[in-house]
Design a protein around this nucleic acid. Structure first.
Lengths: 203, 203
DNA sequence: TTTATAGGAATGAATATTCATTCCGTTTTT
DNA sequence: AAAAACGGAATGAATATTCATTCCTATAAA
């Protein structure tokens, strides 16, 4: 009696989920590489190997698609940063955790951070997307504010510090994606040190 | 005899030059604010207070327009960095010169650096634009290479160092443009120090 | 000095193209 | 066999580009 129902759920979900995910994956890559406006729905459909109409079975329109994608990855990134955050550790170790989070997230979701960064102030983002993004910023702001109070972080507005780290890191990662640099452990360790020196308090 | 001819040149030139410049100015602002693909020719025409067709008197098409703009400002930026470069001074002073160059250039040409940054790897850039841009990078690479040889700059690939500085600075400038931060001398001095600490060799 | 004319610049309506979205016949799943 | 999911051609709106016409300004003619 229950077996058919289980089977139904079991087989139905993957089919649609897979197709939906194919669309999201293709959209992520194309949006990151060419930007929202330069990416057409037919392009996404072709890349995802689905018909153009199929995209509209899963997303009401192009804007819903991009906002879904944006919120999905912002949330995921936020979770990556928060997971196992060493609340009790020293500031340097906390910074390491955040920085490693960026690297891990970028490795696992190739174009995601770049997509987020390049679309952060886009005109088509809805309230939900903006809110998710401000949550993300808040995590980072909290870190820097606490660090400044401890006298361990440079006295600059947290927004400025975030911009320096993020801007720098993502610009660098673009070079890696394009193949101009190789993401060796050595390079990444050096970059972390560089970013840390950019934000820490120097006596 | 000669007076009429002088008059002719004097009055004719400004008319056409001004119109072309109006178009370029409007295009710069709109491309920086909305990106190439989200900016329509009629938008540019309206902003520049010219007819849409007039734009095609000066530029063969939208891509030629954006490439002209790109090359113009990359060249100008390059010149800003090179002008009065203190060849003989210490590395910190040279860095200061370059950093001040970024700031001065950004102040004088509001949207230019941001436009350059956001369109640096765009699909529509032609060979000329890419070449101009690589010249720009070379100036910065030379600086960092020399600094590394003197043991004054961190041992990271120059491209990585450039990415960190530029990415950080431009991300920050975006915040200023959006109004989230104010470009006080204090802030800028702090950011310069932060960037310097990011790239210099720490013993 | 005034009036006519030429030629380049500018215009914006008209056209061609591109793209998001819809629709419907086909295929797949149940 | 019925229902759901798909695909991709068709549609209409938005956009880049063209072009016939108008407008200016500077010279030529009167």
């Amino acid at each position: 009696m229950f077996i058919p129902q289980q089977k139904e759920e079991f087989f139905q979900m993957p089919t649609s989920t897979t197709k939906r995910d194919d669309i999201l994956d293709s959209a992520l890559t194309l949006f990151a590489e060419r930007g929202f406006d330069a990416t057409t729905i037919p392009m996404i459909a072709t890349d995802a190997k689905v018909g153009a109409g199929t995209i509209y079975r899963y997303f009401a329109n192009k804007e819903v698609l991009v906002n879904t994608l944006f919120q999905h990855y912002v949330t995921l990134f936020k979770e990556t940063l928060e997971k196992d955050y060493p609340e009790e550790a020293g500031i340097r170790e906390q910074f390491h955790h955040l920085f490693q989070g960026m690297i891990r997230f970028t490795n696992e979701h190739d174009h995601a951070l770049y997509f987020i960064k390049t679309h952060t102030s886009a005109y088509f983002l809805d309230a939900g997307s903006r809110e998710q993004f401000s949550h993300l910023l808040m995590i980072l702001e909290n870190f820097f504010e606490a660090g400044k109070q401890q006298g361990q972080i440079r006295e600059l507005p947290s927004k400025a510090l975030i911009a320096i780290i993020f801007g720098g890191f993502l610009q660098l990662y673009q070079l890696i994606r394009v193949g101009e640099l190789e993401a060796s452990a050595e390079l990444l360790a050096g970059v972390e040190e560089s970013c840390w020196d950019a934000v820490r308090h120097h006596s």
